[in-house]
Design a protein around this nucleic acid. Structure first.
Lengths: 147, 147
DNA sequence: TACAAAGTTTAGCATAGGCTAACTTATATG
DNA sequence: CATATAAGTTAGCCTATGCTAAACTTTGTA
């Protein structure tokens, strides 16, 4: 009995990490979209379907479908055949994501990897970095500035 | 024309990171499964469906379905109602994964995050760390040993 | 040995995230 | 101003990854 409980508890602890990873994954796409929409609006005043598709490397139709989900989630607004906008929540998520992304990418640079690697790896890593780890990265960064 | 080309090239570069992330994700599950199967075999001589399900935090049927894919991919062997084994490729993948996991987790510890955070975050991060970044982490680790 | 419990598998469903092809709308230009 | 081209949308398909419920094997034990 004691053993069974201990086994159960251990498995539960262990499985928590995997559950977190799966949760991260579903949040990830939304984060990437809103960040990119924010970038496009900053750069050129508006975000269009085609630009998103190109930058994400997916088909147009995929973007349309995903945007529908994001609209349902209250992150994005749009009208047919028109540009895409962010809601308040969307902007917040975009900004949080961008800040996080910046820390992770700069951290990798400070660690000594190439700019290309930092750009690519940070894209995958950022969504799995907890607040604690982000703080540790920022601390490292402040002690080991890039050049 | 020159501008159009430049735009296309930039988008292509940018989209590469996202393509990598998507590719990482499909490889990720396989990695987690084989690592865990290897652990179970090491710990208790055999890996069973139920243990995998508990540790991964998913339903039994999900494990069965995934194992079918892994068998098709030549990573795992099994017979109905019997324990699960790894092929040569499976073992190799498990060992590579474990080594990588170890570096990432220890790296996070060396960076100063808690053991719990290191365990959880490393699970998500490891699959997005390129060879270059892994090397940089190992280098940091050798200069900043844990305790 | 027979049967109950534990473990495994199958069937059927849902959602997310991809794709292509066909269609509709907006826009720029001759 | 008419129309060709670019952009956006819809429909329909696929795979991966989850789930529950029901059926089937294995195994330990009365």
């Amino acid at each position: 009995m004691a053993l069974a409980n201990k086994k159960g508890a251990t498995a539960k602890l262990r499985s928590a990490a995997f559950k977190r990873v799966r949760a991260d994954h579903s949040a990830e796409l939304a984060g990437d979209y809103v960040e990119m929409i924010a970038d496009l609006i900053d750069e050129r005043g508006e975000a269009r379907c085609t630009d998103l598709a190109m930058r994400l490397g997916v088909a147009n139709a995929t973007v349309v479908k995903t945007l529908k989900r994001l609209t349902d989630q209250g992150l994005v607004t749009q009208e047919p055949y028109r540009a895409i906008f962010l809601t308040g929540d969307g902007w917040k998520m975009a900004e949080d994501g961008k800040r996080k992304h910046m820390v992770v990418e700069n951290f990798l640079l400070a660690l000594g990897v190439s700019a290309d690697t930092a750009r690519i790896d940070s894209e995958g890593i950022e969504h799995h970095v907890s607040a604690d780890t982000l703080k540790a990265m920022a601390r490292f960064l402040s002690r080991n500035p890039i050049n």
